[in-house]
């Protein structure tokens, strides 16, 4: 994928805080887009680039608080840095659950905010990479016919061609041909490759008929890609407001 210029979105109803945040983030050479309201941010088409959101949770109007939930449920969630006047713990905990990277209480230092932004962009970059990879895997997966998917399931379960043939009531030769097609379509070179791929797509809504984990055998490869597109939990919890 192309390394697009990252974008930092700032949503704050207070014009002077907004301007100050914009200036601070721009001083780091980052591109900033500011919005006075959650509605303004929603209506704005987002760039296809690593991004994060700096959000004042005390926005007037109820919609400010809905934004994190909406974002995490969307196709392309982005990390959120919450800023607040008084960091109450329940609010912080909720913010964490909804994918906050940082939870900053005003007034905060410039280094804190820049650090949080850098971290958030890093995470989004990783998440975007994963999403792109997953999309590619999905493309490959969708090339398979139902019969090929059956064969794949038995292959990753560790069955030999002969066993698969008898299980599916087909000639061993036919299974060999299917297996070769599966390998080619999924761009896999070995059975461990296949296993990794199957593990990657397991649990995805579009891969309901993907094979389940084979019992007694680890499907995790040596270069396991880690969890899906959900964001790792932020280091500082809501209680960081002293």
């Amino acid at each position: 994928m192309t390394p697009e210029e990252p974008v930092v979105y700032v949503v704050d109803d207070d014009a002077s805080v907004r301007e100050a945040l914009s200036s601070l983030i721009r001083s780091e050479g980052l591109h900033v887009e500011t919005f006075a309201s959650a509605e303004g941010f929603r209506a704005h088409p987002r760039a296809d680039a690593p991004a994060c959101l700096v959000l004042d949770v005390q926005l007037p109007g109820s919609s400010g608080m809905d934004l994190p939930g909406e974002l995490s449920a969307s196709e392309a969630p982005i990390p959120i840095i919450f800023i607040t006047g008084h960091g109450t713990i329940p609010m912080g905990v909720r913010a964490m659950k909804e994918g906050a990277v940082e939870f900053l209480t005003k007034p905060f230092g410039d280094a804190e905010l820049i650090g949080a932004v850098r971290q958030a962009l890093q995470r989004d970059r990783a998440a975007r990479g994963e999403r792109a990879e997953l999309a590619e895997v999905r493309q490959r997966w969708e090339r398979l016919t139902p019969r090929e998917r059956q064969v794949l399931a038995l292959v990753v379960a560790g069955r030999m061609n002969k066993q698969i043939a008898s299980e599916l009531g087909a000639a061993e030769q036919t299974i060999k041909v299917h297996r070769g097609r599966v390998m080619r379509k999924l761009e896999a070179r070995s059975v461990p490759d296949l296993v990794r791929l199957v593990e990657r797509i397991a649990g995805q809504p579009w891969a309901a008929d993907a094979p389940r984990r084979a019992e007694g055998r680890s499907l995790a490869g040596p270069d396991d890609a880690g969890p899906g597109p959900s964001y790792p939990r932020g280091r500082s919890a809501g209680g960081s407001s002293d």
Partner: peptide
């Protein structure tokens, strides 16, 4: 609000 803006602007200014 304005105090937070002062702190942020101060950091930005230095940068």
């Amino acid at each position: 609000q304005p105090l937070a803006a002062v702190v942020i602007n101060g950091g930005a200014c230095r940068r």
